[in-house]
Design a protein around this nucleic acid. Structure first.
Lengths: 249, 249
DNA sequence: GTTGATTTGAACAAAAATAATCAAAAATAA
DNA sequence: TTATTTTTGATTATTTTTGTTCAAATCAAC
């Protein structure tokens, strides 16, 4: 039995069973585990199977895995940013929090503070429901995709409040074009929040710096403080500071 | 059984059941709790599940807020009432739903209808987030105890809308004194909803009939239809009908 | 708030799987 | 036939995964 014959049988078995183990194949093909491993390495290199510890699996079963959820990306950075942002908050503050995933990471760090949070984000409400934080929910149409509230009523709602600090996320930001968004709704809401807050904090991981989205809606000056992660390029950070943004990390 | 295979099974289980616990998975996959935890950490990092204390949940419905123990009472009656109430709803309707637990039981029966629901109840929002229902969330102060939104802004929000039907719950109702509530907030909100709806449906299990709470806030005539359970006394039902309420069950 | 029970994550040890090495066997070429 | 290359399997060292224990964190109930 040569490699070509084994290859066929291995592929066939993997396809039938979905997942196989090395000793299993060794037994089936009457050969050693070492040989099976070498075969699997080759097949995996060719992309015909997915190599696992102890065996192999069908490729298509694995393909679902990668990035199903945007909010999963850069979790570590987001947490670091959120933690830094939480340091800015003082007891008694009234905060705006928008529906960005980075902003949502603030929740664990503010659970025990005596503050008021005004938000349109359902996950934020959910996470702070059993906390010492006083909550105010912005009303309006529910965007199921973003798990957040948008629309005319939301804008009017915000206009009735004032906050000490607004924590906002953003789809894109650049020195040349300022803030940009993927949709009208997000842009409108961000503007409304910024307008009604004494101090605007933009929470934004460094990968988003100097990226533009399709809708430019505000100049850099809308932002008072830009909180990002330590991966930020030093020269770039200086450039933002020159532009009048208080960049910290 | 390697990580990849466990991963598949975990995702499948979480998706089927909505929520799982660590020991449950450990038993199911014949492995230790520690291994399950490590798996869950990875899956959560990839954003495929939401990690909770003791287990994991589907990412979509992290909003799930277990209703207080109150909702456990008379579940059977409440479901029967809700099912009867759902029959009144037609495609295209715009509904108000208040934050009562009986009203919340409507959700399973309206998931697939093409209607718009305006509500101040967080559990209702949560249950309908993945449904064909268009949602409008009433904004204002969040009452953590009742998992609902109240206050001035809520009242103003409601005043801006009009619904075909309002489904409301109540703390007390009697022929002699009409509707009564345990707090100003509930009373105010109920009134606001009733005012803006063409038809007011009161969902109320029979045990609440002829009970008075401390705040009387509206006459019986506020209610167009009273939906209750089959346990209701026949003579009492007739008395309500005499008083002009369309009582059904 | 404080207590008490559970859950968690880190550290370590054991087990399993892998890759590297090397010698023997098989296939190929000279 | 003999020399050379390739493949294979055994041995060993390394890596990966897993399970246990325990202190710290978290939750829930009071």
């Amino acid at each position: 039995m040569n490699f070509q014959q084994r290859k066929q049988l291995i592929l066939q078995t993997v396809d039938e069973r979905g997942a196989v183990e090395v000793p299993e194949l060794a037994d089936l093909l009457q050969t050693s585990a070492m040989t099976i491993r070498r075969d699997l390495v080759q097949l995996a290199a060719a992309g015909l199977i997915y190599r696992t510890h102890g065996g192999a699996m069908r490729v298509r079963d694995i393909m679902v895995v990668p990035f199903a959820n945007k909010s999963a990306m850069n979790v570590v950075h987001k947490e670091a940013i959120a933690q830094r942002a939480a340091q800015e908050i003082q007891d008694g503050d009234v905060l705006f929090m928008d529906c960005g995933s980075t902003v949502a990471h603030l929740c664990p760090f503010i659970r025990n503070k005596r503050i008021t949070v005004i938000t349109n984000s359902l996950p934020v409400i959910s996470e702070l429901l059993n906390s010492s934080v006083t909550l105010n929910l912005i009303g309006g149409e529910v965007d199921k995709e973003r798990q957040a509230v948008h629309g005319t009523m939301a804008g009017e709602h915000i206009a009735r409040y004032h906050a000490d600090r607004a924590f906002i996320g953003i789809d894109g930001i650049s020195l040349a074009n300022g803030l940009s968004a993927n949709g009208e709704q997000e842009a409108q809401l961000t503007l409304a929040l910024a307008r009604q807050a004494s101090r605007v904090y933009l929470l934004c991981d460094s990968s988003k710096l100097e990226t533009d989205k399709y809708l430019f809606f505000a100049p850099l000056s809308l932002v008072d403080v830009l909180i990002t992660d330590a991966q930020v390029n030093v020269d770039l950070a200086d450039a933002y500071r020159q532009a009048g943004v208080d960049l910290i990390y």
